[in-house]
Write a protein that binds this DNA or RNA. Sequence first.
DNA 1: GTAGGGTTAG
Length: 653
Amino acid sequence: MEAVTGPPLLLATQAISTLERCKTMPELRQVHAQIIKTNLVSHTFTVSKLISFCCFSGVSGGLNYAVSVFRRVQNPNPFIYFMLIKSLSESSNPLDSITLYAHMLTRLEDWKRVEFSLPSVIKACGRLNGLEEGKQIHGQILKTQFVFDPFVANAMIRMYFEVGEVDLARRMFDKMPERDVISWNSMITGYLRVGEIELARRLFDMMPDKDLVSYNAMIDGYGKSGKCELAEEIFGVTIRKDVKTWTSMISAYVLNYQPRKALDMFREMLSVGVNPDGPALVSVISAIADLGFVEEGKWIHKYVSSSGIEMNSGFIGSALIDMYAKCGHIENAYQVFRTISQNRNIGDWNSMISGLAIHGLGDESLEIFRDMEKMGIDPDEITFLGLLKACSHGGLVDDGKFCFKLMQEKYSIVPQVQHYGCIIDLLSRAGHLEDALRILWNMPIEPDVLAWKAILSASVKHGNVKIGEAAAFRAIELAPEDSSCYVLLSNIYAKMGRWDDVAKVRLMMKQKRVGKVPGCSSILVKGKVHVFLAGKAMDEKCTDEVLFKIEGIVSRLKLEGYKPDLTQVLLDVEEEGKECLLSLHSEKMALAFGLINIKNDALIHIVKNLRVCCDCHSFIKLVSKVYNRQIVVRDQNRFHHFENGFCSCKDSW
DNA sequence: GTAGGGTTAG
């Protein structure tokens, strides 16, 4: 074939401009072929551009291609080395970066020209957890470098933090002849990551010229360590906030269970004209998921579609799937899952699996898992948590046992305490209390409250006082502040009519100052959220009407055989008083309100903060039959779809 | 060339 000829400069310019428009590997190969044909391979500048594009354009497979191009370069200059070292240091094989650096040292002697690559090699040491390699490079720098370089020192600080050598990082920082804003910020973020919040704050207060990164890092660090008020304080004094400032504050609220504030913050961000990007949307979507505000969620979904943010890049897909599932719209979750069928990441699969789990759709969840395996995607520990939960909520005992085995034997995932909690929950819920106890006694780590609570709830359900009592005492020991353990214990006693013991539990709670978390249910009517606390409506005006309605429902249900389950009431009061307290459970109030205000064919959708109690559960089942309504309740654990007297949880939750 | 924000579980 005739070689294309022409003035090299012109050819090079053309080749480079075609190169920079490449989106895929085949296109890249074509340009490379052109470069070879026109003999531009000997044109160092063009080859540099080619390698640089392969390394940094994000075209998948680019880095490997860059390495293969590099191998054919006769005398790579320091810049070409640098690009590869940097790119490799950020790849999944940071060790290659160090190897290439060592190779470069044997080829190039002028230290001044190779030190450009040092920050990247140091970063690679950190990512590898390679303290020894890091120290070696540190030693070499001390021997060879005569002029202090802040870039190198700053990279070193980060590396030491990453390998867990907090003191070495600090020594580095203290010894630096001069520190720039990045040195300070690196120390602050390093301290925050290892949980040294106060040390981070001290440096933050001391540092001379804080920039936005310093403020954002503090907000983020406070949010992640549960100190929301302090995050708010810093947020309040941050001027010229950018989208990361807002995202840090929004996610601080999400992490600290204040989704309402997170959503308000997001709205405020929009109102001051800051455009949300991927991460900002992801964090607000998770707030919306917690709130169950599907309308807001749909709005964000549309926003994502119209904003050009890729659905299958980052966590947007997983967040949307999770949100739809938690809002009860499992079909929409499926739909998002299907739209991102190309390039699904592990989070997308996990969100779908867990989403199906909370709807009690165990078989569907297992089916997704099988698809995942077929496509050669390795599940992680979260996948199995979702699967175990799905089996647990779907009553699939054998499948659950199989998954628990599979994760260990096929995928070598060591079960964590949550996995044990799930399998114990699964077994005990299904009435296999002895199997559950066997696992609990033999587990290699200390069982947590959740494991004991699983045993406890099952004992309440199956009326096993002895085991229940023991589990309750252990659970209370582990989490004395958790009121639900006391409540369950008292439920066991109440069931047996042991009112003296019920009173003892009450006294214990009083002594330990444990407050019972009030039940709280909300319902969306005509675009407005109405909240009911056990015993009263937050909007006083509707209380009377609701109480009247509940009375009506109760008497109608009694004709159908409804008997209030008085053992669900913790207090030792007269039977009549108990019945009254029982009818004031927040989900009953929300339901009554829904029956009054939501037209006949529409779904009634209630969100509750705690688990639905037994009495409310049978109450709602009957309502769905007698009033011929479809009712969906999302409680702390899962969804209940009530229809025609039945619940999707098959009475096991 | 060095520093900052995001999901699924809990």
